[in-house]
Amino acid sequence: MSFFSVQGLTKRFGGLTALDDVSFEVEKGSIFSVIGPNGSGKSTAFNCINGIYKPTAGSIHFQGNKISGLSPSRIARMGLARTFQNIELFASETTVDNLMLGRHQHMSTGLWRGMAMLGRRTWAAREEIENREHVEQVLETLELEAVRNRPVSELPYGTQKRVELGRALAMEPLLLLVDEPTAGMNPEERADIGERLRKLRDDLGLTILLIEHHMQLAIGLADRVLALNFGRPIALGPPDEVQSHPEVVKAYLGDG
């Protein structure tokens, strides 16, 4: 049984088939890139995987469990985290509070214990401190300490993208889905994010599904690549093979 697998995934919106019979497998500790022109169904695939959309057909398995049909929060609690193409941060909260939300499932303080946080030794306080330490580590790896207590809505776009990545990492996921992490970034920032993703795989053994518009980055990082066009898989395999696949070349030339 593979670490993560998708079989015959299909998603229709009314008459539009956004995903058409897509299948692939992802090995633990690898980076798997999904490429394709605009509107080819990449984000739709992510939305099906983390449960925001119910697939029209097909199934998704994670660590031997079927996750298709479960709610996003159930899927998250199984160790799957993601970022969004259009940033979905908790806008009025600070960077720290956004990342603390990533710790939600690792914490257990409820109503009563929360209200009764009356000293450093109470349950809620101990849990806050422990999880803040974890969050601080993530802030340090992503160099976000300087904006720790700033409301995220005040941060520049590139920093918000990093906060979103940080929030996903704070969840300590087994599988991380990142949807266009470098959109709107300059080449320098883009290379920086690429390097961070590579490190996450190499140092932490994290498994990453990556949607990335910049071919070079997507291909350069990936262990395997899936190319979509109009929702259909047109190529699947090692990066160099997919890159030179005639259908892929055609799709990208047609895309301009």
């Binding site: 609690r77 979905e88 941060l89 499932q105």
Partner: peptide, 13 residues
């Protein structure tokens, strides 16, 4: 702020 993101973080909305 974002029910979708909350669900995605494992919050049972």
């Amino acid at each position: 702020d974002s029910p979708i993101a909350a669900e995605t973080m494992g919050v049972d909305v």
